[in-house]
Simulated assay, not measured.
Amino acid sequence: MSETDVFERLGLTEYERTALTELLSLGRTTAPTLAEAAGIPKARVYGVLDSLADEGYVKVIPGRPKHYQPHPPEEILDRAEENRRQDYEAFVGDIEAERESFLAEFGPRFERAGEDITAAEELFYVVDVGEPSERETRRIYHEADERVRVLTKAFEYFETVEPAVADAVDRGIDLRALLLHPDTLDPENRERQRDVVDHLRAAYPEVGIRYSTNALPWRGTLADPSMAYDTGEAILLVQEDDVPNYMRQAAITENGAFVAGLNRYFDLVWEYESDAPAALD
Rank of each mutant, 00 (worst) to 15 (best):
M1I: 07
E8S: 12
T13M: 09
E16R: 10
T21D: 14
L23A: 08
L23P: 01
G27H: 04
T29W: 01
A31T: 04
L34H: 03
A43H: 12
A43K: 14
R44C: 11
V48M: 10
A53T: 04
D54L: 12
E55K: 09
Y57V: 10
K59Q: 05
V60P: 01
Q69G: 10
H71R: 13
H71S: 11
P72A: 15
P73S: 13
R79S: 06
R79F: 03
R85T: 13
R85W: 09
Y88A: 13
V92Q: 14
G93H: 05
G93I: 04
E100T: 10
F102V: 11
G107N: 11
P108N: 08
T118N: 00
L123S: 14
L123F: 11
L123E: 15
D128H: 12
E134G: 09
R139H: 10
I140R: 00
I140N: 01
I140D: 04
I140Y: 05
H142F: 10
E143A: 08
D145W: 03
R149D: 07
V150D: 10
V150K: 00
V150Y: 04
L151I: 13
E156G: 14
F158P: 01
T160H: 11
T160F: 07
A168Y: 00
G172D: 12
R176L: 08
R176D: 06
D183E: 14
N189W: 01
R190V: 04
R190W: 02
Q193W: 02
D195W: 01
V196N: 00
L200V: 00
A203Q: 11
Y204I: 02
P205L: 09
E206H: 03
V207W: 01
V207S: 06
Y211A: 03
P217Q: 11
T221P: 00
L222C: 05
Y229K: 14
T231M: 04
G232H: 06
I235M: 08
I235H: 03
L237V: 14
N245K: 06
M247H: 06
Q249M: 15
E254K: 15
G256I: 05
G261P: 04
N263K: 04
Y265N: 13
W270F: 09
W270K: 12
D275F: 02
D275M: 06
P277Q: 10
A278Y: 04
A278Q: 07
